[in-house]
């Protein structure tokens, strides 16, 4: 009896959150799955069900290959680099005593800054004629580069921006992890004449492995959804008129938006839904593999 009562109470407390989640998360999620299997859906009506046609259309889209390529580069290049760089910075930050609080704040500032604002700042840094990067390059007599003008240099700029933008949160998590490691392990390592690099690889990294795994998994998921960063750096149109498909910075989420923007064409909303589901399945599969690998490597 008592148990039942408290159950009712628990549900009661959960109700507001559940109501909001149902309307804004569960229903759209369910609806996306439904939309992906509708035929010629437009303005709320469809002519029937299809099985794979919407998915086939997504894959046949001339921008699909480019979106997969761009997303993959962002995922597989930026995540490992930013996790490594964040780890290095955290260890260095943790080892200094003076100004630690100040530096921690400085490194955390990007996290509370709007991504679009940061993107605009970076767009300025990478600007061909008055950008800071070209200015610095001119000091060492390197000709100005139109960083955002071509796909190759644009991708390099995007990756730099993405890595930098992701550092703040990672550093914060790593730092809190580092500070919770018992100092006696380091004293013990010191007494045993352990070189600094071995202390890092054999003690710090293993003891930090739960944090590293967490950050890696969440960063991978986040990068699969990359879109904001591109809008921040290149502007709101991911497919400017006249760009060739293999010159664009479209990502999978960008592709979804592109399809949605043509929602008055029959079937385009369903294509967007199908693309989201493809992204969802990929991310899920990747995360499962990720968790499985880290389970073997994480020591606690």
């Amino acid at each position: 009896m008592l148990e039942k009562q408290s159950n009712v109470k628990a549900w009661l407390y959960l109700l507001p959150a559940l109501a909001l989640l149902s309307v804004f998360t569960f229903y759209p999620l369910f609806n996306a799955f439904l939309l992906a299997f509708l035929k010629d859906y437009v303005y709320g009506s469809a002519t029937g069900f299809v099985f794979m046609d919407n998915f086939k259309n997504v894959i046949a889209d001339p921008n699909f290959n480019q979106a997969v390529k761009n997303t993959s580069i962002i995922v597989f290049v930026s995540v490992p680099i930013s996790v490594t760089v964040a780890l290095m910075i955290s260890v260095l930050l943790n080892s200094i005593k003076k100004f630690q609080g100040l530096l921690q704040t400085i490194f955390f500032l990007p996290y509370v800054t709007n991504a679009i604002a940061i993107g605009m700042a970076f767009a300025f840094i990478f600007n061909e004629s008055y950008g800071l990067l070209n200015l610095m390059l001119s000091w060492v007599n390197i000709d100005p580069v139109d960083w955002l003008g071509s796909w190759e240099t644009g991708m390099v700029s995007l990756l730099i921006y993405t890595v930098w933008g992701g550092l703040a949160f990672k550093i914060m998590v790593f730092l809190s992890g580092l500070q919770s490691i018992d100092k006696q392990y380091y004293d013990a390592a010191r007494v045993d004449a352990t070189p600094k690099f071995r202390v890092f690889t054999r003690i710090t990294v293993p003891l930090l492995s739960p944090m590293i795994a967490y950050i890696t998994v969440t960063s991978f998921i986040g990068s699969f959804k990359a879109y904001r960063t591109i809008v921040g750096l290149f502007g709101p149109t991911v497919l400017p008129a006249g760009t060739l498909p293999d010159e664009s910075f479209i990502t999978i989420v960008g592709l979804i938006y592109e399809s949605l923007s043509k929602s008055d064409t029959p079937g385009m909303v369903s294509e967007a839904a199908a693309a989201s589901i493809l992204l969802f399945i990929t991310t899920l599969a990747f995360t499962i593999v990720n968790m499985w690998v880290s389970k073997k490597r994480v020591h606690f």
């Binding site: 018992d182 006696q184 013990a188 010191r190 007494v191 004449a193 054999r202 293993p206 492995s209 020591h299």
Partner: peptide, 29 residues
């Protein structure tokens, strides 16, 4: 420096590396 003194130190809470086996712990120095 402590590492040059040739001392063995046993900490109050032992400070065994939790991610290493007994063998790895003993072999670490």
């Amino acid at each position: 420096a402590p590492e040059d003194r040739g001392i063995g130190l046993v900490f109050q809470n032992y400070a065994l590396y939790p991610h290493m086996s007994v063998q790895q712990n003993i072999m670490f120095p």
